[in-house]
């Protein structure tokens, strides 16, 4: 059975590209348009979460904090995929419980390599 990855991004294009890349690598992908939407899609076991940072309703940092407080997602790897690259932002995400950080735009093989490395 394929592992399921949740991708969270307010950009439909970004979600589409992440889904395209990860499905092509053999993963099942669920999409959420922001952090709030993502919290409503935690009913099935997730292997990983790939989230943007700047999103309406609930941003990436807020989502990471919620996920780390959620019993089922406490140890789920969370990769931040964002246009941001500021050290302070990275530190904030790291403190919230993020696993890795990728700056957009990503190349498909980069994203797949990160996912494979994180998922072991």
């Amino acid at each position: 059975m394929n592992k399921t990855i949740l991708t969270v991004d307010d950009s439909a294009t970004a979600r589409q590209m992440v889904t395209f890349t990860l499905k092509g690598a053999g993963y099942d992908v669920i999409e959420a348009k922001d952090g709030q939407d993502a919290l409503g899609k935690l009913e099935q076991p997730l292997a990983m979460v790939v989230t943007d940072l700047n999103m309406p309703n609930l941003d990436g940092i807020g989502l990471i904090q919620h996920l780390r407080a959620h019993p089922g997602c406490k140890y789920v790897p969370i990769v931040v995929l964002t246009t941001e690259s500021e050290a302070a932002k990275k530190q904030e995400a790291r403190a919230a419980g993020a696993t890795a950080w990728i700056v957009k735009p990503f190349r498909p093989e980069q994203l797949v390599a990160v996912v494979q490395k994180v998922l072991g």
Partner: peptide, 17 residues
């Protein structure tokens, strides 16, 4: 080339932001 398209299409998100 598909990878290039994937990378290029993400520009929309970047420019949008």
């Amino acid at each position: 080339a598909i990878g290039e398209v994937v990378t290029g299409l993400q520009a929309h998100d970047i420019v949008r932001q």
